[in-house]
Design a protein around this nucleic acid. Sequence first.
DNA 1: ATTACTATTTTGCGAGTAG
DNA 2: TCTACTCGCAAAATAGTAA
Lengths: 234, 234
Amino acid sequence: MDIFNLSSRELGLLIFLAQNRAAEREIEITTTQLANFFHISQQTASRCLLKLNKLEIVTWKSSPKGSLVKLTSDGVYMLDQLRLELEKALHPDLMSIKIRGTITTGKGEGKYYISQPGYMESFKKKLGFKPFLGTLNVKIKSDCIKQLELIRGSWPIIIENFENEERTFGKVLCYPLKIVGLDAKVVGIIPQRTHHPSNVLELISKLNLRDTLNLKDDDEIEIEFPLEYKRESD
Amino acid sequence: MDIFNLSSRELGLLIFLAQNRAAEREIEITTTQLANFFHISQQTASRCLLKLNKLEIVTWKSSPKGSLVKLTSDGVYMLDQLRLELEKALHPDLMSIKIRGTITTGKGEGKYYISQPGYMESFKKKLGFKPFLGTLNVKIKSDCIKQLELIRGSWPIIIENFENEERTFGKVLCYPLKIVGLDAKVVGIIPQRTHHPSNVLELISKLNLRDTLNLKDDDEIEIEFPLEYKRESD
DNA sequence: ATTACTATTTTGCGAGTAG
DNA sequence: TCTACTCGCAAAATAGTAA
């Protein structure tokens, strides 16, 4: 789903909802309120919500007393996506986004997840390499959080969800990156569920990054995200 | 003109043009190219450009050989505006934007301009105070340029253009700000012509800011731009 | 090749109203 | 009150084509 497939009304509605904190939690709202705000009819507001709901951009519970609306992670992604496009529009000379962060030690979850055969197969197929069984956790510096958000706005390589006997594993979003000073392919991974603001980015590579780069906790590295100037043609 | 009055097609077109550097200079493009990119008919692309041109969002010279298109300052403003709305959507808890900069000495132009009676009248009427005859020039730190762009995306108080016997004076855009640590009303002013990236913000106030705050060149100050959460109702 | 007019089709809005 | 249906009309898209 592409932000440019939404009508301007739907986009405006999405922004309005997010500004009213509907990205974090369900908010109460009536179609009449929306209609008044946007100077449209109540029917049109209703139709818009209906469509956003069908597109899985918002979840929506309607009742004769009003509506409860919340953005889905797809909805937030739409906004991130638009933000990246705008960034490229306002800074067409920008070739890459640079992010600084420090090495941190996770709870070993990353290793557990990427070791799952269901993921490993997809990694090999879609990323073109078999990742080292471990992730390098990078805590993004606070003044680079916006850059991380920009990366989220780009079209990721999607590692599909799957399930085994015990449980289900969600989708993983992958972003091809570079570590400044290292030539090897590196990929940032973000589990789809986690659209809550996380300031830790997990990196995978064919190599054991921690050893190769001889990194200790709190060491600082710089990550580079190359921008491409072709938009997905739907 | 409000960004939310554009159709999504027009918005997409505007972003596309800006991404192709049409904010800086005239670019060559044909309506057929646009039609292919957006998967619409050539006629619709033509009409979109026509409309953007009529709204003075782009300048457009068409000929049987193709078109030359360039964004106007209004066009860039549309994008800045959308960026601010998105910022508020993605960070609904943000109450203000903070910018750091250092004091610098201008060429005395600021004083010349704001002393013009044509401006002075408007300042008094629209800002509610008679500014001190001089501006405090603040060179924005490079890592705060984006915040300055966000301010440009807000709806300014507009001091109208006028002319006297000798020459014409353009519009001035005013943004109510705060200097951290000072209670007095302060206003950032940007001449409308200057939509070229300027990293200097001129501040005016009833007070002589330089003296009141006892500032020397290269001193650092922090500026705060309060965000409001009501959108203009057309 | 272009742009852009006219005719026709399609989409989408708002009014009225049922649940 | 709410949401959300149908219907009639208006706006906007496409196709064909002229310049």
